[in-house]
Design a protein around this nucleic acid. Structure first.
Lengths: 178, 178
DNA sequence: ATAATCATGTAATCAGTTACATGATTTT
DNA sequence: AAAATCATGTAACTGATTACATGATTAT
């Protein structure tokens, strides 16, 4: 028999499956909207991303689609299958991948901060601090306390990182030009 | 006159330009190697990514390529042009983008952690902690003290986040099943 | 001599982006 | 009636992935 659980879920696929699982039988549209509502700029939640992705998950047997017949409007409500639940757990509990460093636009820049002048450096750090503080106070997931708590913890950690790194940079780099 | 600085650099392009700037006249091969050596799993540093990217930057006038004639081996050493330096600074000092949340594989999973049992949850957090601690102690950029310091600060922040979040999850979720 | 590394590139594929297109339903 | 939102999807494009292919140079 052909094994169809060839490869692991991508992070976007995993997150999408989790959203379908969380929201019960629901549409691609709703999942896309929930990505757009998240504070991460990383996944656009565009139709061009989510509809093909949903189709993929469906074809792999991880979602089953029941077209809801109420009204004449075309609408497919998906449910996570048993295979889908197993794949979701594999993704969710994958400690190796969870431990990865991911991508951070601030960190990516900081390692080159010796290329700019002290004033430019300070301006950048000050600007990021302002915006990070604003983001930290936002109520985003009023309906999902765990997600909101995680977000707040993340923003706290990021702010601490910023303070830490500001001190490091101050110490490591001369006050004039790098 | 045709303006050719239409759009901004992507993060990968910015980082690549910065690497070219840092390493002086050097090859795509060397830049790719430096991406592979970085602790981030995010950019593969594969030839298929870096050679086309270098070509793009060259065609946009941000890099100029001087083919080094020593030996018969084909080899192009690139230098960052003045336009390239300007573009690099635009990317590097873009506070708005630097303040973005990026992508974190742990954070992406944590917000769904109410879907698993207490023991699974604890196993995941413990596993991530172990691996994160291992990563935190690695000496990666022995030749680049700023990059190394930033990396260490990042891993510290990530570990603090993990501790913080572990407490939050413990408080928020019942000890048995979510 | 052999193996490792330096160096460049392409091919097939995959998955994402923005933008467009359509039309039903619901709210104002 | 008009506007907003729900809902689905496609098209053109961009950029990244893995894998392959080639060959020179350097180290063992």
């Amino acid at each position: 028999m052909a094994t169809n659980s060839d490869d692991k879920l991508t992070d976007l696929e995993g997150a999408a499956l989790a959203e379908f699982a969380r929201m019960g039988p629901t549409t691609s549209y709703a999942v896309a909207a929930s990505f757009r509502a998240s504070p991460s700029e990383f996944w656009s939640g565009s139709a061009g991303a989510v509809y093909p992705l949903t189709k993929r998950l469906f074809e792999r047997g991880l979602l089953s689609g029941a077209l809801s017949a109420q009204g004449r409007r075309g609408r497919t409500d998906y449910v996570v299958t048993d295979a889908g639940k197993a794949a979701l757990m594999d993704w969710l509990l994958d400690g190796g991948r969870a431990a990865g460093m991911g991508f951070d636009p601030l960190r990516s820049r900081l390692i080159y901060l010796d290329m700019v002048s002290a004033s430019e450096r300070e301006a950048l750090l000050a600007q990021v601090e302002t915006w990070a503080k604003a983001l930290a106070q936002q109520q985003i997931w009023t309906d999902r306390p765990l997600a909101q708590s995680v977000h707040e913890a993340w923003m706290r950690a990021r702010l601490n990182f910023l303070v830490d790194v500001t001190r490091i940079v101050q110490d490591a780099l001369p006050p004039t030009r790098g």
